[in-house]
Design a protein around this nucleic acid. Structure first.
Lengths: 105, 105
DNA sequence: ATTCCATGTATCAAGCTTCGATATATGGAA
DNA sequence: TTCCATATATCGAAGCTTGATACATGGAAT
């Protein structure tokens, strides 16, 4: 399944809302939660993470993974926490609008 | 509200499912059905229409509008009618997957 | 008369995102 | 020692949206 432009950032923010994670971990979580239908390559994940950091929605810090590897962890900033809610609502609104057209088109 | 990449084609096909229309008309219909929240500029509409025609989902023919203007009308091909159903189902699947992440993220 | 606006179609450059390839590095298992 | 999973990063290609620009017609208002 293809991911839609703009959707990835929202998913990452939402996943980070439950705690800090590193990029590789976020990719695997999306794969898990989507029942393997959403495969996010690193070529999409890392640019997205850098984008979000640049926008001030996440902070990053080096740390150690559960498997003892060194990795870059990301966590939501206050601004990021607000953004999650906002994007969720926008997504719901968008889906509602598309639904109208899909039913009454 | 921003339209998501790939969504426009589906909306156009769905709107054409109820009968032939011209580009300007489709734009206005999307604006109407979305309660003015989805503004599709001609810079998006015409390339989309040409894209769909190239893919064989629509046919075009010149005709006269209700206001007596000359315009290019588009109608679904058989291939296009199948495509509408397929894209609708893909959209529902996609929304369902996103919902899982938005709820269990 | 003339200006403005809605109706119509079309293309272009800019900007952004996604995707796949590529590079690099570590460490455990076979 | 070879392979795979873990982990980050960047690049070019490809695709879509946006806003600008161009062009043409005709009715309405000043």
């Amino acid at each position: 399944m293809e991911l839609m432009q703009g959707t990835l950032d929202m998913l990452i923010l939402k996943i980070l809302a439950s705690g800090k994670r590193h990029g590789y971990d976020i990719s695997k979580r999306i794969l898990l939660l989507s029942n393997s239908s959403l495969k996010v390559g690193h070529g999409s994940m890392y640019p997205a993470l850098h984008r979000l950091e640049k926008k001030g929605f996440v902070n990053s810090m080096m740390g150690e993974t559960a498997r003892g590897r060194s990795a870059k962890f990301y966590e939501l900033t206050k601004h990021g926490r607000e953004q999650v809610e906002q994007e969720k609502q926008q997504w719901r609104d968008f889906v509602a609008v598309i639904d109208v057209i899909l039913e009454e088109g």
